[in-house]
Structure formats: C-alpha cells, structure tokens
Design a protein around this nucleic acid. Sequence first.
RNA 1: GGCACUGUAGCUCAGCGGUAGAGCAGGGGACUCAUAAGCCCUUGGUCGCGUGUUCAAAUCACGCCAGUGCCA
Length: 519
Amino acid sequence: MSGRAPYYITTPIYYVNDAPHVGHAYTTIACDVLARFKRLDGFDVKFLTGTDEHGQKVQKSAENFGTTPQALADKNSQNFRDLAALLNISNTDFIRTTEPRHIKAVQAVWQKLLDNGDIYLGSYKGWYSVRDEAYYGEDELTERNGQRFAPTGAPVEWVEEPSYFFKLASYGEKLLKLYEEQPDFIMPSGKRSEVISFVKTGLRDLSVSRTTFDWGVKVPGDEKHVMYVWLDALVNYITAIGYPETGEGTDFARYWPADLHMVGKDILRFHTVYWPAFLMAAGLPLPRRVFAHGWWTVEGEKMSKSLGNVVKPQELLDTYGLDQTRYFLLREIPFGNDGDFSKRAMMQRINGELANDYGNLCQRVLSMIQKYHEGKVPQPDALTDADNTLLGAAAGMLDSVRAELNNQAFNKALDAIWRVVGDANRYVDEMAPWTLRKTDQVRLGTVLYNLADVIRQLAIMTQPFMPDSSARILDQLVIPADQRGFGDLLTAKLVPGTPLPAPQPAFPRYVAPEAEETK
RNA sequence: GGCACUGUAGCUCAGCGGUAGAGCAGGGGACUCAUAAGCCCUUGGUCGCGUGUUCAAAUCACGCCAGUGCCA
C-alpha cells in the first residue's frame, strides 16, 4: 500500500528446450537495468521472468533423452533461474508455465475467448514445423529428397486434425487502429512498420489447439486438445499478477497493463499481433509497449551451434566480470539494433571507459583525499563558476538518463553519465589539486569535496547498470544504504569530516591472456 | 518477386536544406593526483553512383549499384 506508482516489466519466458546463451542474458539484463532504475526513481516495480515449458518440441526432446517432459522442464527451467542469479537480476517473480496458477489462468482466458465467440472448432490441414512451432503455406516450402522444409530450414510435416481456431482475421482493423493510436506500442519504429505491413496484408484465423501430442494445457471441456503454445505462453504475463482475479486490490488491478514487454525480434509478431488480439478478445487492457531488441553476432559471425561460437554467459563473466559484461552489452550498440560481440570491442570498453575514465576518476580523487586530507571528506567553501558548471552537469544527469531510458536507449543513457565522468576528469586537470595543495588549502578542500560528491552522484546513477561495482564505490564514500536512491542525489550530500577507507580500484584493467602471441 | 530500411573519416555511428561532426584507433605536446590512467592539440572524408529541384543538397525527388530486414 505504498504511494509509489506501479511499473510492470517482463522478459519473454525462455523456452526450456534451449540452453541459456548470451542472447537470453542480454534481454534479461536490459530489463534488470530498467527495473533497478525505476525502483531507484521511486516506482513500485514488478519484474517478471520465467520459462515456457509446454509444446511438442519439449515432449520430443524428453523422449529422446528417455525422460518425462516434466522432468526435462524441471531441470532446464532451473538453468534459467540460475542464469538470473548469476547475472544479479532483481526479478520479483519467476514463472513457469507448468505451474497450477498458470494453467488456471490460461484456461480462464480460453473460456473468455470462447464466451466472446472468438473460438470455434474446425479442422486444420497443412504443413507444420515442430521446430518452429509454426504453420506454413504450401508455396513457402522447398523440397529436398522428398522432405519439405520451411523457409527457416526446419522440416515440416503434413498435419490434418480437428483444431480450435481463434478468429484472428476479424482483429486486423482493431490492431491497425491500435498501432495508429498508440505509436509507441511497438518499438523501435522500424519494427512497428514491419508489423503494420504484415497486418495490412490480411490475417488468417489462428489454429490454437492440437491433438497430436499432449504436453500442454488441456482445452477445458475437450481434453483431447492441448492449447497452442503461444496462447499458453503469452498468458504468463497476466498469470503472474493473479489473473483471473482482477478485482479491486488485486495485483492485476495494480500492475496491468504492463509497462513494457521486452522481446527479441524473432518473437515480435506473437507479442504485437496475437497477444493484443487475445487480450482484446478477453476484454482486457493492452500492454503499453513491446520493445524488440536485436541479435548479437560474435566477431562478425552469426552465433550458431554449427559454428560452435555460441557465447555462454558463464564464460563472459569468468573472463570479463559481471558488471563489465552488463555494461558492455548495453553500451556497445543502440538498443534495438543488432550488434557485434568482439574481444577487441569488449576490451576497449572495459579499459577505456570503465577502468580509465570512470574507475580511475574515483581512484585519483579518493587517493588525493587520502593523501592531502588525511582520508577525511573535506570541507567545501565558496563555489566558483567552474565548480558550478561541474555540479550543474551532475545535477542534470538524472533527467537525461531518465528520458533516454524511457525510450530504452541504454547507450545514450550511459553516454549522458559518461559526459559527466569526462567533465569531472577535465575539472581535476584544470583545478590541479596537486598545486592547490601547496598554495591554497581552502580551495583544495572545495575542489576535492566537489569531486567526491560528483563521484557519489555518478555511482548512484550507475547502480542500475553495474550494481556491485557502484555499491563498492558508494561504500568507499561511506554512503549509508538508505541514501543511495535518486531522491538522495542532490539532498544527501557528503558530510565533511567523514573518515573514508583507503581507496580500492573499482574497475581493473582487462589484460588479454598470452594467447595473443599467435598473431 | 513486393514493401521497407541502410550506404558519411581506418572502425562504430551522429547530422537530414545554408560552405563536413563525435567516440575509438593513429600522430604530437604539456602535466603528475591516479589503474603507464587523465588533460590539451592534431592527421584523416569528391557524405555509394548518376540526373534533377533549389540562390544553396549528406540533407529533397527520380534512377542505378551494394547490403540488411519484413513479407510472399
């Protein structure tokens, strides 16, 4: 019952058939940064991630492994839970589509769609790819050695079975109206255009049940059918906030509609066409935004199992460190674009921006306080224009970062913070405390105080991106745990006279192993 | 095949009607508090190609070439 405004953000639920890789880490970290930012900015944040566990693929994998789908799901779901812990993710819930709460929610949604007249029993005939969990038209397929393949390269099989259909075709106009009236519903804008042109070509009714396997949520009243995995999966976003309980005082009432569904560009259509259509049919409000981010290549090449260049999150953390990895992923490319992960780029970011710019700024200032001021926070005196310019830049940081993050522009947000890092480094050189030390003790105290306080503000601002490292910097400034929010930026200034510990470098330089010799 | 988007310094990109910009990389310098970091200066581009509109075009229009995405 706080007065704080709610903010609800979700990652996709990850398919238990996949092994966690850097792509999963990327999506989740991006959401984590936003969740942490919103919390520090005073919001009551609900942050959901989890796993998608039903479907024919999982059933088949389980058979191959000689185990049950549930056992496979249990094991692989844990991998994603571990990943979140490894990445220091601050999710408030972790949903699994095999949980009773979810099955109850999905069946309730189904009933709503049925009551609304949007589901009918028909029969499905066509080509289906188990691997893609998708249907294809005859004209989309290619044939090799008697086997037909989808454009994705996945084999397809002829399926002919009774199936329930969702009247997606009748939602085309409503969806186009949604994209029109809520231009930020799909971001980035290029992706929005793609979805609009897709919907404009006309939608077909969607087969939403299958009878050829049974690893899924049963259709109420017709248990030969299990629901289409995407109908099942998408509902997770409302399961987690207690659907079908939607009355006053429920989590649903408080947190829905979601502020942001973060997705990879491969599942954009499901989230911007099917999902809003389902919600409309169920009479529920629509999420405020779906943001589709891009893919990472590795050293210029597409990540793939066959190339053997799939980047495992654990390897990145072992090599570069958690906060360094979090920083790199969000700093290197404009969010929404594809990006390339290269050792060289990683090293340049870590050494150039973290170690040299930011880390060294902290180290040089704290060292001077240690040497010139007996390790105690100095007493500031009258401010000069130069002081006010620096302090003004720091004071403007929050607004800039907030504005950028409201558009998921992580790289620009970091850029805004680093402009102040640069200002502070220049200020050190211009003020030359090592000279003031011999000429003007009062001025020296003011300069060092300003710098230390700007570092305090910088560290508060970098918390969402690099929680551990930022905390270490704040610890070195002896900032109490309850004075690290954005509300404290300008009000909880450093207290002169506070003794500070001996400084420790916040971001070590990355030195490549000897392997470089092969060049 | 259709519809989009992109093509600007070695690299990544910003600029989107008024005589080319940033970061990184490269070169030089002054300093010394610091993680041999930081600071200052600097080399570098016929803005994919062509035609057109305009007093004036990376910037608008058309065509072409190259790449990418979505759809078929």
